[in-house]
Amino acid sequence: MEIVKSALEPLFSLIHAGSVWAFVLATIGAAVAVVLSQNVVRMAFWLIIALGSTAGLFFALDADFLGAAQLLVYVGGTLVLLVFGVMLTASGPFMQMKTSPGEGVLAGFIGFSLLGLLATSVCTVAWDPHGAVAPIAAAGYNPAEEGNTTRALGMSLLGLRPDKDLGQENARPGTGYLLPFEVASVHLLVVLVGAAYLARAKRRQAPPAL
């Protein structure tokens, strides 16, 4: 029994740590594939993989509500909309619009330089690990006394910050996000009306009477 345990230990630790690495690799690979593919529907497919794996990374970062929101809003909503747009606009010859090779090389060069710049700054800056506070709540199931991110997020959108305001002496209230929340709501309403106005069917002439 002990032998089996120790023999399979690497395998299980691979599953344990490897799942997050799988999401990391999937995100990177799919993002690169979005750039490289020429067919716009394939781009949409790779974008789905990229954004879905990002949702997986959110789960790994203990942001379970955000991960689910990413899946619902982004992958299930926005991307369906995009694919829908592709279907409405892709007609034969416009399916593939090739970038000229010169542009591709230039963009690749600039892209790699930008990536190099970002990567070096990521590696060289010490990101102050000592300033870290323990996360609000671990992902998954949290017992009653530990709360969860959903509750905390909801309260902060209502203008309360349970992790900052409550339980502190002389805490200054009002560090929440009530105003941005309201602004975002109005913004969404405006967008709803605006998008419906822009995309409405324009009838240049009245349809012939039957």
Partner: peptide, 9 residues
Amino acid sequence: AVLFVCGAV
């Protein structure tokens, strides 16, 4: 960073 650069390109 990779996502950002891919998006920009």
